[in-house]
Simulated scan of single mutants.
Amino acid sequence: MQYYIKQQLFSWKDRFTVKDARGNDRYFVEGELFSFAKKLRVWNAADEEVLYIEQKLWNWLPTYHLYIDGMEVAQVKKEFTFLRPRYAINGPDWDVEGNVWEHNYTIRENGRVIADIRKEWFTWGDSYVLNIQDEAHAELALGVIIVIDCVLAASQNASS
C-alpha cells in the first residue's frame, strides 16, 4: 500500500492526515496539546483508535512506546551516534536503513522490506510517500515512521 503524509504547517499541536494513493483519508494523527511528553493518537477512517504513541520522559535519548489495543507492541529509541541518527526498534525485529535526515530510508525485518519512506520535494510543508509492503504491518510501520519524524523535528527545533 502506498500512503502519503503532509504535515500541517502552523499548527498548535501535531495534526495530520495519512492519505492513500487515491487521495482518500486513511488515518488521522493528533497530538495532545498540553503534555510534557509527546503523546499521539492514530485513528482509522472508521474513527477507531488503531495506535497510541507515548514518549517516555527523563531518558537521555528519545524513547517512544507504541500501543495497539492497549498493549505495548514496540519501543523506538534513538541510539547514540556521532554522525547519522540510528534507531533501535524493540518488539518486532526491525531495522532502519538509509538516510533518515533526508527522509529516504527503509524499514526491514531480516532483510525483507517492511516499508520504505521518501520525502516529496517542492511541496508546501513536509510531505512523505510511504510504501508499506504488508497491510498487516501498516499501523505499526506508520507509528515507527511518525516517531522518527517526531525525533527529527525536535532536534531541528532545538538546533534553530
Rank of each mutant, 00 (worst) to 15 (best):
A153V: 13
Q133S: 07
I132A: 02
V147R: 05
I145S: 01
I114D: 03
E49D: 10
R22Y: 13
Y4L: 13
G98H: 00
R26S: 10
T106Q: 14
E54S: 15
E135S: 10
P92Y: 00
T17Q: 11
K56Q: 12
D14G: 07
F36L: 15
Y128C: 03
P85W: 00
Q8W: 07
D25P: 04
T81R: 10
E135R: 07
E102P: 00
I53G: 02
M71I: 14
K6C: 07
V129T: 06
I89D: 11
G70F: 04
G91Y: 02
D69T: 07
R22K: 14
Y64L: 04
D25V: 10
N157F: 06
V129R: 01
I146L: 04
V129H: 01
E135G: 06
K78V: 02
F10M: 12
V29A: 02
V151N: 06
L61H: 12
D149M: 07
L61A: 09
L140V: 03
K39S: 13
D69M: 12
V113Y: 07
V76K: 02
D116S: 11
K78Y: 01
A154V: 03
D134N: 11
G111C: 07
G98P: 02
Y67W: 03
E139Q: 13
E102G: 06
E30R: 15
D69V: 09
E102D: 04
A153G: 15
P92S: 05
R84E: 14
E79A: 13
K77P: 12
L40Y: 06
V147T: 05
I53R: 04
L83H: 05
S159A: 09
H65N: 15
A21K: 09
T106V: 15
A154R: 03
E72C: 11
G111P: 07
Q7I: 03
V76C: 02
I89Q: 11
E48V: 12
R22H: 15
D95V: 09
V144G: 02
P62M: 04
L66G: 02
K119H: 03
A37H: 13
L9S: 05
G23C: 07
T17E: 10
I89M: 13
E79F: 05
V50N: 12
Q8I: 04
S160V: 14
D126A: 05
V147C: 01
L33W: 10
W58R: 14
S155I: 08
I68V: 06
Q2K: 09
F16D: 00
M71P: 09
A158S: 15
E102Q: 06
I107Y: 08
F28K: 08
L152V: 01
F34D: 08
G111R: 01
G70W: 00
T17M: 11
Y87W: 07
Q2S: 12
L66S: 04
A136G: 05
V129Y: 06
E109P: 13
R112F: 15
I145H: 02
D116Q: 14
E48K: 14
L33D: 08
I132T: 05
A88V: 12
R22F: 15
A46D: 13
A74V: 06
E49P: 00
A153Q: 14
R112G: 14
D69F: 11
R26T: 07
K38Q: 12
G111D: 10
L83V: 08
